[in-house]
Design a protein around this nucleic acid. Sequence first.
DNA 1: CGCCCTGTTGATACGATTCAAATATCGTGG
DNA 2: CCACGATATTTGAATCGTATCAACAGGGCG
Lengths: 234, 234
Amino acid sequence: MKNVTLKEAWTGHADCRNCAIRQGVLFAGLSQADFETVHRPVDQYRLREGDLIYREGDGGQYLYTIRGGLVKLVRYLPDGTQRIIRLLRSTDVTGLELMIGQAYGHTAVVLQPTELCRLPVDEIKRLSLANARLYQELMARWQRALGNAEHSITQFATGAARQRVARMLIWLVNENPDNRCHLFGREDVGALLGITTETASRTVAEFKRLGYVTEDRANSFVCDIPALQRLLDE
Amino acid sequence: MKNVTLKEAWTGHADCRNCAIRQGVLFAGLSQADFETVHRPVDQYRLREGDLIYREGDGGQYLYTIRGGLVKLVRYLPDGTQRIIRLLRSTDVTGLELMIGQAYGHTAVVLQPTELCRLPVDEIKRLSLANARLYQELMARWQRALGNAEHSITQFATGAARQRVARMLIWLVNENPDNRCHLFGREDVGALLGITTETASRTVAEFKRLGYVTEDRANSFVCDIPALQRLLDE
DNA sequence: CGCCCTGTTGATACGATTCAAATATCGTGG
DNA sequence: CCACGATATTTGAATCGTATCAACAGGGCG
């Protein structure tokens, strides 16, 4: 988190007991009694596009659980360009590597307005040793992170550029009943899909011309999912 | 594991207390006393190239820890072609998804002669709840699997074909002092790197002509690591 | 011995990158 | 509020790399 914005981004101590998405988050398994033993607060933040959550190599003390929005985990290549390893969205947890004493393995940057909770890793460690349900939740998060990474391999790093863009749009729409999604900058599209910014731009533009997507506001798209799906069977 | 070969592949009940790679394996944290409570045996197997360990979607009861050799985790695409998600080698654990009640997420196939131990998942579950060290080891394995998946993204699915092949060879040599590695079939090379079989073949052949690698036996290569490394800075 | 499977090589077409330029968008200060 | 510069996006043209389709060589095995 940018230190300068930390204060403005802060939206309060989280009331985990009454968390609206509690059944989806890490603390799903914590009883009222367990909460009493949490000594350091869980803080909530609201972040804007471009905000930095943490930096690769930093030895932090916090895990983050995404309440809503979109975050990219990136790694920077020797030549300065970035590669997006995977994306995080609602109920994803990141920073798990701290649990085994490692530094953050990526740089985490906000792609779309995001709300998240910041969890002190030492409390999680302590609680997870005694609480079987939290332990289960942690393993499930790890497995989900793994699934997401594998999704990046099979869906975002495989096939022609057109197919990758189509898979990305389908993923972004994510069962949204109105088939709407918000897209991010073309450079990030390229870094996610392993293609150049120009190819990302060209492909999105082509989809617009073909009517596969309609842009109602800037970077707000309504997608013709069946049409995009058709691209994937070819 | 192919049922037909299960018997021949079996090489005995593992003596975990005296395991040669115990400090590297999952059971590193188990005390003598803990071992006494393991009711189902840990079996050891020696498998040949092409042997099937488990199949995606199967609801198995065993984790596997690789003692030596090389295993591919693959997922089959709608059109029948395969994509290699990641490779497993010594001390890697696979099948962790069983810990949270999921079926195997991939098909696991032996690429090079492999020795592995088969661990009953319910025993691991039970032990890990009481044994903090095993719990730590499990998290570390999960994190390593995640790191391997991310390695597949950044190293094997990024850049030109020549660079991908170079990164693969460097990975296969893996600090081997004599710079030797065994390669697998070109189709698998393609499936790992997201390129066609022909491009895989062409690129390896090109490396041979350029002297970046020398093939002393069939698919046994000695690699000029600095030369390959140089390809990556371009 | 001949067949099948794998690996290699060739020719061509297609797609993505690259380099370059024009256009659009955003934020800032006047 | 507008003008300006900085930044992001789009488009164009040429080049390069990879996929594709096809043919052939070699090795292992029945």
